[in-house]
């Protein structure tokens, strides 16, 4: 420009303070981002429901109502109903100790609580086999007393507890740390007992955090595959959870039935994400 018009005075209109953004850039960026999400998320998600209904709605219902599928659904619920409350109680206890008191080794404790997240699901199952399996530490004693843990329901429950161990705690610890101790201290000074303080002061303050942690914990508990696969033994109608049932059907080339059962788990995931978004909106609203 200056080479063409060497003597011209700078015209304000030619050099605006903020350059107008190029119009096509946002559109292109949105398009690339959506294409990436479509390739890896949306298309596979749609495929689950498409494949599930491929042979018609009647076939879909039959695949879900079949006795083996029902017992798999039942076991999946059993494992979650035991694992989630146990990890909830643990999460509240851990968050109470970590957020409301000062002690040495606190950051080490937080790291240890997160440990199950960095362990491969396969190893999460393996460690329980090493303890409760026939050749394990407690194996001979358990066999003597006719108690089965591995290749039975208790092993599945234990593996589920392990993989969902950190969910509630890691949600509650930062939340309760951010809320401080003043309210609890006021309650204590006014004569409330520890349980009253917990029940009437602390828990109402973190109710959305608890719900958030519990639904994520539950989704993982019901959907866990690797860890449960190692300890289950895949006995149909006895030690099959829904994800394991999906695997068996799929390996038998019974694709439509496999996807029918998988669609239940996909629905669970979508409901989980829905509740999660709702909780996030509520939290935004309250702050």
């Amino acid at each position: 420009m200056s080479a063409v018009l060497p003597l011209s005075i700078p015209v304000p209109a030619a050099t605006p303070a903020v350059r107008p953004r190029v119009r096509w850039v946002p559109a292109a960026l949105i398009a690339v981002a959506l294409a990436y999400l479509a390739l890896f998320l949306f298309v596979p998600l749609a495929a689950v429901f498409f494949e599930a209904l491929k042979k018609g709605f009647g076939f879909y219902l039959d695949a879900i109502r079949e006795p083996d599928a029902w017992s798999a659904i039942g076991l999946t619920f059993t494992a979650a109903i035991i694992a989630v409350p146990l990890n909830l109680v643990f999460g509240v206890a851990a968050a109470w100790a970590i957020a409301k008191f000062d002690f040495r080794g606190k950051s080490l404790l937080i790291t240890l609580i997160d440990l199950p997240f960095s362990v491969s699901p396969v190893i999460s199952g393996l460690i329980y086999v090493l303890i409760f399996g026939l050749q394990g530490w407690l194996g001979p004693w358990l066999a003597e007393h006719d108690v089965r843990v591995i290749f039975a329901v208790p092993g599945i429950v234990l593996a589920t507890i392990f993989v969902t161990f950190p969910f509630v705690a890691r949600e509650l610890i930062p939340l309760m740390q951010a809320q401080g101790r003043e309210e609890e201290e006021a309650a204590a000074v006014l004569g409330a007992s520890g349980w009253q303080t917990l029940w009437y002061v602390t828990l109402p303050n973190v109710k959305w955090g608890i719900l958030y942690g519990v639904i994520l914990c539950n989704a993982r508990a019901m959907g866990e595959f690797g860890a449960v696969s190692v300890v289950s033994g895949h006995i149909r109608g006895l030690t099959n959870t829904l994800p394991l049932h999906v695997e068996i059907l799929y390996n038998e080339y019974n694709f439509a039935a496999a996807f029918a059962c998988a669609s239940l788990l996909a629905l669970l995931a979508l409901v989980t994400l829905g509740i999660k978004t709702f909780v996030e909106l509520r939290q935004e609203h309250e702050t």
């Binding site: 788990l265 995931a269 994400l273 999660k276 978004t277």
Partner: peptide, 24 residues
């Protein structure tokens, strides 16, 4: 909705993801 769906891999059981990706 898209923002919420980004978390799908956290919520979708891995076996379901496995067979869905294989089918696609």
């Amino acid at each position: 909705v898209i923002d919420s769906l980004v978390d799908l891999p956290f919520a979708l059981p891995t076996a379901v993801a496995g067979i869905a990706l294989t089918a696609v």
